[in-house]
């Protein structure tokens, strides 16, 4: 009796598999504007929320609500979400470990998302050049919402707002890392602990 309604999504799903395999990776239609920023990282994501704009290929989210799906993806991938800014020295110092992780887990169900909290006026002048020059392989998004008190707890109640901060999750299991990351192994340990 429910066969039809049950089948429809499966068919949809298959269609998507076919479609996404035909498209070259990292150039889904949403990503048309994407430049060199973080291409290879995006093909493994489900339902990336549509950004308000792209600057230098980086998806820009004006409101937290628009970016909120990034913190609640419900699939088999473990997401390693790092909050950073180009002006934050300890953030920049730990970026190589996230990059290392992205490379080491290429093709596996681990996805790093670097959430930039840069000043919106510096997205073009600082963030985009930084991401381009370093050829960051991890996905980079920028979150412009400065009403932090409204959304910090929606990421993790453990987070005071200090950056760097890293939120590792898979479905409903999560770990919050409120200190600077000192090695890729530390991130792997957090992933394994879920």
């Amino acid at each position: 009796m429910e066969n039809f309604t049950r089948l429809t999504p499966v068919v949809c799903g298959l269609a998507i598999i076919l479609f996404s395999c035909n498209a070259s990776p990292a150039t889904g239609q949403d990503q048309a504007a994407s430049a060199s920023s973080a291409p290879a990282a995006q093909e493994n994501n489900t339902e990336w929320p549509p950004p308000a704009a792209y600057i230098g290929g980086i998806p820009i989210y004006e409101e937290f609500s628009q970016a909120e799906p990034f913190f609640h993806f419900d699939n088999d991938t473990t997401y390693v979400v790092n909050f950073w800014a180009t002006w934050c020295k300890p953030c920049v110092e730990e970026l190589p470990y996230f990059e290392e992780l992205t490379r080491a887990y290429e093709g596996q169900a681990v996805r790093v998302i670097l959430v930039s909290l840069d000043f919106p006026r510096q997205f073009k002048t600082k963030l985009a050049p930084f991401v381009g020059e370093r050829q960051l392989q991890s996905a980079v998004i920028a979150l412009a919402d400065g009403r932090y008190n409204d959304w910090i707890d929606k990421v993790s109640t453990e987070w005071t707002g200090a950056i760097p901060a890293t939120y590792v999750y898979k479905r409903d299991k999560s770990r919050f890392i409120g200190t600077s990351v000192k090695s890729m192994a530390e991130l792997e340990a957090a992933i394994r602990s879920l």
Partner: peptide, 29 residues
């Protein structure tokens, strides 16, 4: 859920393609 699952699957299915583009870039800090 199924839709989400399918998307995840599709991503896995395509990982082979993505690999070629990825160049290791050890920009050590």
């Amino acid at each position: 859920l199924i839709f989400t699952f399918a998307l995840a699957l599709s991503a896995f299915a395509c990982n082979g393609n993505a690999g070629a583009e990825q160049q290791s870039n050890a920009a050590s800090e």
